[in-house]
Design a protein around this nucleic acid. Structure first.
Lengths: 374, 374
DNA sequence: CTGAAAGCGCTTACAG
DNA sequence: CTGAAAGCGCTTACAG
């Protein structure tokens, strides 16, 4: 009996999280009024707003987005799916999206791929279950984009594309940058230039290869297909392939790589072979990484601004959400090249150049010399 | 009239996403039965399950997690808040959490701090609004943890701690590693060893400083406080401070840094000053980065396995969610040091060592020589 | 074994 | 200006 008479002790911090009903009760109003007072829509009596806000504050009330979303049918989150967060480029993309999302009060749900297409779709399914407003991804196959399209979820593909023009795409203008890199090397007098691309065969690498070949064709220099090598994944694999390449009889005098890890493989291989850069081997790469400006000589690199790519992708996604019916857009960012010390005329250029060109002539022609050969 | 007689054309892909009611209707059962058939709980008639699943498949049905969560009162997502995704260490932590989360079917909601405590709390509030099951963070202040604790959200602090033992913590055993690094340098004969730490003053850096001082004390070598320098944020700031330090009259013969970007600053400063490493300056750092094994000489570094840290943090969080009342735990990972070429005896060691020690004696004593001085 | 009903937390017409 | 009611999509006792 005594027990029954005791008032139930309300724990100071209830295990149950405060709901709008708690806030309404504390403020002495209805749930409707509390809701209106809190989110500022609709009329609310003088002084009521303050009272409700104070109650919310006291109770540490944080509205449940799930419930709100359920009612309002809108989402305040975006899904992001990148290949591998441990790769700085992808981390930068995620960082760019994150910054924009924070500014707009959006939550970012992030998944990183295991590389498998099936896992990607599984992650995308979680995004759909979470009812994200849209998805930004660096696709490893067409499957995710197709799945998401079927679910009517707006999609933006970053860095490479699989959708075949069926969704928005944000990339780096790789063909142009690869062309300029090739022209630079051709201008220095290189005739045997190797191109190392990711075995995965992303569209980004296809673009760059096309730009490379175009520049060579324009300069009238035939491309030796044995010098276009696909390798990966991972630095170790790249190093092995580079070792084969550089040690062979028809070794190139210059290498262009399409990713930082490919350049790292070449760098390590060159170190292994005691090949001096740039005297014996010139190196240019896509994807500027911190180490490239720390080593000696520093490596000439095409910067791909992942952060900017992410920011733009988010803008595109938001634009798409606003206007779902508009035709898909492809945004191509111009890449910036950091010219550093890893390129020079090929060894024995004076002799090899023969009737074509003297070393001095070459050096006067500058980065775009290759084009004068048209 | 004719119009009214026309059957309404159902769009092939309705704009409205399929709900469980659509699935139930298509399968000719009630919503309750459809729900049971789909999630495997409760009885369901023979053949019914298959029929419902087929209907779900056809309609591309993906259950709404928000609604499910609202009803079940459970969350299938975790919040992660790191300082800056562009810093490889934090990206690694996020990657480790992501991998574990994917395996467990959890979504990861990721925010990266703007560095400001206020923004951090704002992001944490979004996590609470999303009703995440728990939060893992690299805190910049005690505020977030306090806020989250008040909201009864389980928290794990990674890399550093502010909670004062009020929440779970997963860190690298920094004091021990710093002590070993100091012993290594002392063993080589260095007496003027600088310590560069992050100006931010994280607990991680405090630990390392303590380990460093302890090792020096044990070896009977007084620490010159002007050699303990706090700098940041950013490589440029670190480089400037390193320049001052290395150019001064009482310049150190060795430097220990607590982060990759600090080491980068020192490396650049040394390059600026044409200081030869390791002959004129020894360098040891925390936070192994790719460039450290690419430069010449390669840099001796204490590896902090961010990925592993993330994996363990997630495990701890899940453990905490299971057992909310258990006392908080601190997990300290032993750090692994990669000994490379950036350390050597100090310049003029033979002369300077004087009555104390000969260079040869030192080199025979190995990495732990410092301790023999006790 | 199945389905009608209740309810998770919220917001929004709508009636007063 | 306010509050009762409906309803977002889902699941789970519970009655049949």
């Amino acid at each position: 009996m005594a027990d029954a008479a005791q008032p139930v002790r309300r724990p100071e911090r209830p295990l149950r999280r405060a709901t709008i009903k708690d806030v309404a009760d504390a403020a002495g109003v209805s749930r409707s009024t509390a809701s209106r007072a809190l989110n500022g829509r609709g009329y609310v009596g003088l002084g009521i707003r303050e009272r409700v806000q104070a109650a919310a504050e006291t109770l540490g009330y944080v509205p449940d987005d799930m419930a709100r979303h359920l009612k309002e049918r809108v989402s305040r989150s975006v899904g992001v799916l990148v290949s591998d967060l441990r790769t700085p480029f992808y981390a930068d993309v995620a960082a760019g999206i994150s910054t924009g999302a924070r500014r707009r009060g959006l939550a970012m749900v992030l998944g990183d791929g295991s590389g498998s297409a099936v896992d990607e779709v599984e992650t995308a399914r979680r995004f759909v279950a979470l009812r994200v407003a849209g998805v930004i991804l660096t696709p490893v196959s067409a499957q995710v984009t197709t799945f998401l399209a079927r679910q009517r979820v707006p999609v933006v593909e970053v860095d490479r594309h699989f959708g075949g023009g069926s969704c928005d795409v944000v990339v780096v203008a790789g063909a142009a940058a690869a062309g300029e890199a090739a022209e630079h090397l051709l201008g220095l007098g290189h005739r045997r230039i190797a191109l190392l691309v990711d075995l995965a065969g992303w569209s980004a690498d296809q673009d760059r290869e096309a730009g490379f070949r175009q520049a060579c064709a324009t300069a009238g220099v035939p491309v030796d297909d044995s010098l276009v090598v696909r390798c990966g994944p991972g630095v170790a694999a790249a190093r092995d392939r580079a070792l084969e390449l550089l040690r062979g009889p028809g070794a190139p005098t210059a290498v262009l790589t399409t990713a930082a890890w490919l350049a790292e493989g070449v760098w390590r291989a060159a170190t292994d072979l005691r090949l001096r850069i740039p005297d014996e081997l010139s190196l240019v790469t896509f994807d500027d990484a911190p180490w490239m400006s720390l080593v000696t000589p520093a490596v000439t690199a095409v910067e791909q601004d992942g952060v900017r790519l992410g920011e733009i992708a988010l803008e595109r996604l938001l634009g798409r959400i606003e206007a779902p019916a508009e035709p898909p857009q492809t945004v191509a960012l111009t890449a910036r090249t950091h010219h550093r010390g890893s390129t020079a005329a090929p060894p024995g250029a004076r002799a090899v150049a023969g009737g074509r060109r003297s070393v001095n002539a070459v050096s006067h022609m500058g980065a775009h010399a290759g084009q004068t050969g048209v």
